[in-house]
């Protein structure tokens, strides 16, 4: 029997689905609330996980940094974590993730990186408007803003100088991918979930309210998507580029039909895609964890 741990910090529908599937597949399932866990340099697995050592851990924290550090603790205790620290670290930083995609030859939007406000202004002068600025650490489409002119740029630079967090000095500026709009002025992107490198399901995410962001967290609608060979191949290649595991690969369709991968997500949410998918996604994830534990 596989001893499977689900590390979480907010028990969402996804974590409950994973727990249910793990129990259905006969796993001995242990829930670990990362908010209450503590560890020390001389800790044993039982000091961190109430039930003791597990064969495999599904890391599902909604807080990226909490999950990343929890993963490091669990790996230091020789437990296999999905996703591994190296994968989570690569996906959690958009600049690192983009560079991995580029290095692996996965088509991705042209992106500029600058490390001061002055350098960011120079990028805009050279590349020209518009570009999309994205926080290097962040999710759910927050802080993703199209910069269409100098006024917007000035406002963003001023806001960042006020908050002045360590990541505010890192500027990630990406080309705007021109996409087709439907009759209601909505654009779409594609989310593919990969499990162990295998694309298991795809959906279209329709932008909400005429905006250009299609994140479901912002009100985007999930729509069933028949996965093409190109989508599947790109998703697998993107998964390989960051080290594999359980991932959410985001793609956009250029107006000429060519696909680009613009994001790889580490702790992938699947409540929305499960509504339109024919596959049992949590079951595939748990089965992958069980197979990983047996290796």
């Amino acid at each position: 029997m596989t001893r499977l741990c689900i590390a979480f910090d907010r028990l969402r529908a996804e974590e409950k689905m994973l727990k249910s599937e793990a129990e259905s597949l006969g796993c001995q399932t242990q829930m670990l609330d990362a908010k209450t866990a503590v560890s020390a340099t001389d800790s044993a697995p039982g000091d961190v996980i109430p039930g003791g050592r597990c064969d495999v851990v599904l890391e599902r924290c909604v807080s990226y940094f909490r999950g990343l550090h929890m993963t490091s603790v669990l790996e230091s205790l020789d437990m296999s974590v999905i996703n591994a620290y190296a994968v989570a670290a690569a996906c959690g930083n958009k600049m690192v993730m983009t560079l991995r995609l580029k290095r692996a030859g996965v088509p991705t939007p042209k992106t500029h990186f600058a490390f001061s406000a002055e350098a960011a202004e120079n990028v805009m002068k050279d590349a020209g408007y518009p570009l999309v600025i994205k926080p290097v650490v962040g999710s759910w489409g927050r802080g993703v803003i199209p910069i269409r002119g100098p006024d917007t740029l000035a406002a963003i630079l001023e806001a960042r100088s006020v908050t002045d967090g360590p990541f505010d000095r890192i500027f990630y500026l990406q080309e705007v991918i021109r996409r087709s709009e439907d009759a209601e002025g909505r654009t779409r992107d594609i989310r593919v979930i990969t499990v162990g490198g295998e694309p298991v399901s795809a959906m279209y995410r329709m932008s909400a309210g005429g905006g250009f962001r299609a994140n479901l967290a912002l009100g985007g609608d999930p729509v069933a998507c028949k996965m093409t060979t190109e989508m599947a191949e790109l998703a697998s290649a993107a998964s390989d580029a960051v080290g594999g595991g359980i991932l959410g690969i985001d793609l956009m369709e250029r107006e000429d039909g060519r696909l680009v991968v613009h994001e790889v997500n580490n702790t992938v949410e699947f409540k929305g895609i499960s509504k339109v998918s024919e596959r049992n996604i949590p079951q595939a994830m748990v089965q992958f964890a069980v197979d990983t534990a047996r290796k």
Binding site: D9, Y64, G138, W140, V268
Partner: peptide, 11 residues
């Protein structure tokens, strides 16, 4: 009381 949404929350 539940935690409020953090800057690093998400996927």
């Amino acid at each position: 009381q539940a935690e409020t949404v953090g800057e690093d929350w998400g996927e």
